[in-house]
Amino acid sequence: MNKVDQFRALHVPGDPLVLFNIWDAGSAKVVAGAGAKAIATGSYAVAETNGFKDGETLPLEVALENLRRIVTVTDLPVTIDMEAGYGDSTEEVARSVQLAREAGAAGINLEDRMPGAGELLPVHTAAARVAAAAAAGIHVNARTDVYFGKKAHDYTPALIDAVVERASAFSDAGAGSLFVPFLGDHATIARICERSPLPVNILWAPGRGTTAELGALGVARISFGHGPWAAAMTWLEQQATAVFADGNPPYAG
Results as ranks from 00 to 15, higher is better:
M1L: 13
V4L: 05
R8L: 10
V12G: 04
P16Q: 07
L19C: 08
L19V: 04
L19H: 00
F20K: 09
F20Y: 13
I22M: 05
G26D: 07
V30T: 14
A32R: 14
A36S: 14
T41R: 04
S43C: 05
S43N: 05
S43L: 09
G51W: 11
F52S: 04
D54K: 09
G55E: 01
G55S: 06
L60K: 09
E61Q: 13
E61F: 07
E65N: 09
N66P: 11
R68N: 11
R68K: 15
I70K: 07
T74L: 09
D75S: 12
L76G: 03
T79Q: 10
D81H: 01
M82G: 06
G85Y: 02
D88N: 08
E91V: 09
S96F: 05
I108G: 00
I108T: 03
E111C: 01
M114K: 14
M114Y: 11
G118S: 14
E119M: 08
V123K: 06
V123L: 15
V123T: 13
H124V: 13
A126I: 08
V130G: 03
N141K: 00
V146S: 00
G149R: 02
A152R: 14
Y155G: 05
T156I: 11
P157L: 09
I160G: 02
V163W: 00
R166V: 07
S168G: 09
S171Q: 13
A173E: 12
G174P: 09
G174F: 00
A175T: 04
L178E: 04
F179Q: 01
D185G: 03
H186I: 02
A187Y: 03
T188Y: 04
I192L: 04
E194R: 13
I202R: 05
L203N: 04
A205P: 01
T210W: 12
A212K: 13
V219Q: 00
A220G: 06
R221L: 00
W229R: 08
A230K: 12
M233E: 15
Q238F: 08
A240N: 08
T241C: 11
T241I: 07
G247C: 05
N248T: 14
P249Q: 08
P249W: 09
A252Q: 13
A252D: 09
